[in-house]
């Protein structure tokens, strides 16, 4: 059964044909995606957010932890565009650097959740006897609301950026694993999988080359949501004091610093709040766009008009 030759490869002309069709489909998909107004707006917001984070060192007018006791709680001015906090630190600089923390946590959580979710989801569906074991375990985790679980874990592990990432990954993995499991279950019943098996492809090849490659799109959509939720959840954790410890700036802990001064120095809490709101809006718009484009029923509905 273990034929190691390449009879699985299709004749060259057919392969070229398949590749071309695939490219065409992808181009059409991207065109539709960027033609979708809310996706485009969301994408631009997120791009701006990302660029701010990447260019923080150059964009921020001051160091994010630079203390100036002569400018405590200074209102927005030409010198400090968004004012200063109780340490005389420049809010603009802190917000800019804060986006870096959000983005870093968002990316790590997406990558880790993606890996964990894919491994667990695929194992659960591909290795039958593991299914019940893994899924019941994940159901147990899912019994807790995601953010609440993350808060509990972060509080138990202690405040640090790494621990916040771990906590969020644990909180978001079960849902992702479910999505992966569901689509792998569908894909692995496809005829081409059977065909691959028939020509003697090994488990590794079947899983990576055929099953996962075809089960990826729901995962990508899921991960964009994980990214969005991570940014909010990181802000929540930091606000509660279980995110990155001081003096590191993060959108959540800047707001936390400002909450005692809402009446005297509204700018501390308001500006990072606006940034979070806009970032979340951007991610939601992107998510809406993706859903519209990917959901065949909605597309049919619109095309029918």
């Amino acid at each position: 059964m273990t034929a190691d030759a390449g009879p699985a490869a299709a004749p060259p002309s057919l392969a070229r044909e398949v590749a071309r069709a695939r490219r065409r489909r992808r181009q059409g998909f991207l065109k539709r995606l960027f033609g979708h107004p809310s996706f485009l707006i969301g994408f631009m917001i997120l791009a701006a957010f990302t660029m701010t984070a990447l260019l923080a060192e150059w964009l921020a007018p001051y160091g994010p932890t630079r203390i100036n006791y002569r400018a405590i709680l200074a209102p927005p001015s030409a010198e400090h565009w968004l004012g200063t906090d109780g340490f005389g630190r420049d809010i603009l600089s802190r917000v800019i650097h804060g986006t870096q923390v959000s983005l870093r946590i968002g990316i790590y959580v997406v990558v880790l959740t993606g890996i964990m979710g894919t491994v667990l989801g695929t194992l659960a569906s591909y290795v039958r006897w593991l299914d019940a074991l893994i899924m019941r375990g994940l159901d147990g985790l899912m019994a807790f609301p995601g953010v609440l679980l993350a808060i509990a874990l972060a509080a138990a592990l202690g405040p640090s950026e790494t621990n916040a990432m771990i906590a969020l990954t644990v909180a978001f993995t079960p849902r992702t694993a479910r999505v992966v499991r569901a689509s792998v279950l569908v894909v692995q019943e496809m005829q081409y999988i059977e065909a691959a098996r028939a020509v003697g492809a090994g488990h590794g090849r079947i899983v990576f080359r055929y099953i996962l490659a075809n089960a990826l799109s729901p995962l990508i959509v899921q991960l964009t949501f994980v990214f969005a939720v991570s940014i909010i959840a990181e802000a929540i954790l930091s606000f509660l004091g279980v995110g990155p410890p001081p003096p590191a700036p993060s959108l959540g802990n800047i707001i936390a610093d400002g909450r005692s001064y809402v009446q005297e120095a509204w700018w501390i809490a308001v500006f990072p709040g606006i940034v979070i709101a806009v970032a979340v809006l951007g991610l939601n718009l992107m998510g809406d766009g993706l859903r519209d484009v990917l959901d065949p029923r909605q597309r049919l509905g619109r095309d029918g008009h």
């Binding site: 203390i67 109780g86 202690g158 405040p159 004091g241 001081p246 003096p247």
Partner: peptide
Amino acid sequence: DPNIPQHGRAAVVIAEQLNGVGINAVINQV
């Protein structure tokens, strides 16, 4: 600690000043 606000605020300023002279100061806020 953050519970007695002066403690946490003093620690942040002290850490910043010590970092300024090359001491690898980190804050453990519990």
